[in-house]
Write a protein that binds this DNA or RNA. Structure first.
Lengths: 329, 329
DNA sequence: ATGAAAGCGCTAACAG
DNA sequence: CTGTTAGCGCTTTCAT
């Protein structure tokens, strides 16, 4: 900026005013400065600017890592942000600080002073209400609290999935849970249990395991379930990645899906349809959730407190190739 | 930080030293400061720190928008970065500044002073060599230049796709190009033309159109191609999004895919297999490209100039349901 | 071993 | 209309 100022024969303050379109600059001066800016290819530093002023026109999307779910959120957010004049900054900050608990607070603190005007936090465990930064949570731990939230109807979706298996004649159904610290995981288990209870079916505690929502962490519990002497004829996994891990595990132990074992997932990430066989799953409108969150956040940033809302989107069952009637039926 | 300093009864300078593990702080003092930091939940501002010091341990991934291709890159980068101690910051900056040409330069200037220690730029049009920031380009406009580059073998992939169609008996084959300003697009067209020539097949200029790599921009040219009196029996689209748009267009005008029209895409994004029918396409190892780029960048940041390399990954044909023998054959 | 002070690139009063 | 000046939160000499 100093270069521009010198080259245009003005002060940096004037350059700043021109860049930000402030009043009180002669048209001729403004034009000259603009000319120098484009000639030098000058671009203001987001960092320095944001250290000084409170607005950056950048929305942050905070994630633990870029996996299929957050990637879909990003796609939806990207489409939604296009018409708003905001840039998008997605941050994945699990690198240091040892464990990955509290990444959302760390990331928010690091970015919000203020690199970003507001943040969408994807699947946060702890949502600390800081009212200095507008925040929208997607599928948070605690379920709706004081902060704006977007989630899907996890409970109804889980009921759908379980009823589907029951309708196919399955009676011994396993549940592979996600992370016990996430509300979505709890609700999916609850939906599973209530649908089982409604059908008068027992839930064998040995058939309920925790898979951590990740492919690698689901591998062990999936094998354990399938290694049981009286193994189930169907598995309902709390997300697609774990369902895919279950299909892999089944193949490992020589079980055919869906003839010997039916598998249902949750999310309907793009990977679900690419699985072999294609995964029957409960679809959440993930991209729409991302778009909805951005919409809410933009209103929040604009000071519209009515946007401190809780949006719940519907889920639906998508039947594909990984489920079939129970063996011997 | 001032709060921490006051609360610990030291100066901010000392706090800074403790945080950064500098020498010259008494063990007792350090301990006390640490305690206050965790009690107050203090997290240093990435913005302020980066304004002052040159290292942030953050790698930037610059994209025009978050669409399927860049989302896959992100997944690969995320996996690769996990073991390196870097955080990932993905930036999509097309919001302002009118046109979207030069977004890569704008984004880089804005972030590199230095919020990020280096950047992976996805599908840049202009790659200006600034040697103050380590940069790796993925699938750039110009093909390999002075800067580190990761791309896939576009030419060989396009030949594969075209030969596949020719082997199925197609003779009138259309090519729906991407963006004329991208090297990948040019190479795919070149592969198409050389495979056609090798088979002694003519290329009708009216069957070669530009679709802009996006679903919306491909809609019109796809309809135009299919609306021709002597329409082709097969379309090779330079990416999956345009291939999907072509399938949609075919459905629009009452053509069945693959019975009446075969369609081949390029990329093999997750959406390809979810299309109806599932898309036959040329697969690029996109996630691996993201991982490779991060690997190169980390070495570049570490000062390893041998990493200023050009990595080309292989492509392969994935036959799915959108291609079939030419009608009447 | 600790702190005072300068300054990173920028914006926002405030004077002139 | 334009420039001077004081910081934003942090790191880094350089004294003490």
């Amino acid at each position: 900026m100093t270069d521009v100022a010198r080259s245009a024969g003005v002060s940096v303050a004037t350059v700043s005013k021109v860049i930000n379109g402030r009043y009180g600059v002669a048209a001729a001066t403004s034009e000259r400065v603009q000319e120098v800016i484009s000639r030098l290819g000058y671009e203001s530093s987001l960092v320095a600017r944001s250290l000084r002023s409170s607005r950056t026109n950048v929305i942050g999307i905070l994630v633990a890592e870029f996996e299929p779910f957050s990637a879909e959120i990003l796609k939806g957010a990207s489409a939604a942000v296009a018409s708003t004049g905001y840039d998008l900054l997605a941050y994945s900050g699990t690198a240091h600080a040892g464990s990955d608990v509290g990444w959302e607070r760390r990331s928010l603190s690091r970015l919000s002073g203020t690199l970003i005007d507001g943040a969408v936090i994807v699947t946060p465990t702890v949502v600390e209400v800081r009212d200095d930064v507008p925040v929208v949570a997607i599928d948070p731990h605690e379920g709706p609290t004081g902060i704006a939230t977007v989630d899907a109807d996890n409970d109804a979706g889980a009921v759908l999935a379980t009823e589907h298996l029951i309708a196919l004649g399955h009676r011994r159904i396993a549940f592979l849970g996600g992370r016990t610290d996430l509300e979505s995981s709890r609700l999916r288990e609850e939906g599973f249990r209530s649908a089982m209870a409604a059908a008068g079916l027992p839930v064998d505690p040995r058939l309920v395991r925790v898979g951590g929502y990740r492919r690698e962490t689901a591998d062990r519990p999936a094998h354990e379930i399938l290694g049981l002497p009286d193994r189930p004829t169907a598995v309902f996994a709390a997300n697609d990645l774990m369902a895919i891990a279950t299909i892999d595990a089944a193949r490992d132990v020589g079980l055919r899906v869906p003839q010997d074992l039916s598998v249902v997932g949750f999310d309907d990430v793009p990977e679900a349809v690419a699985a072999t066989p294609p995964l029957t799953t409960v679809a959440q409108p993930i991209q729409q959730m991302g778009a909805e969150a951005v919409g809410l956040l933009v209103r929040l940033i604009a000071g519209d407190d009515a946007a401190r809302a809780h949006v719940r989107l519907p889920t639906r069952l998508v039947e594909r190739g990984s489920t079939a009637p129970a063996p011997g039926r």
